[in-house]
Amino acid sequence: MADVRETSDATFTTEVVNGDLPALVDFWAPWCGPCRMVAPIVGELSEEYAGKINFFKLNTDENANVPSKYGIRSIPSLLLFKPGDDKPVATIVGFRPKGDLKKRIDEALA
């Protein structure tokens, strides 16, 4: 089962930065076509990396602070964090095939 939780400006630090596992955050908005293509892939990744990475999505229409902090100017953007560190270890901008995403994630967490 895909497990991608909704995060927000209010819960980002607790859930994402200070989580028990590395966290991947999908920055998206409902009006963005490529974001709607990325979402099911992120869902599949959440199954393949279950127990290794926590998966989140953040709606950039409803949350301004976190996107602004990370200078998000293009969506979809996927940011990967290690526990306790608020600087992302990987930033992936734009739609990428699943194979590419896995490679970037594995490299960043190796």
């Binding site: 009006w31 998000i72 100017r73 979809p76 734009g94």
Partner: peptide
């Protein structure tokens, strides 16, 4: 992609 990014 203007439709992706214009809103920012």
């Amino acid at each position: 992609c203007a439709t992706c990014d214009a809103a920012f």
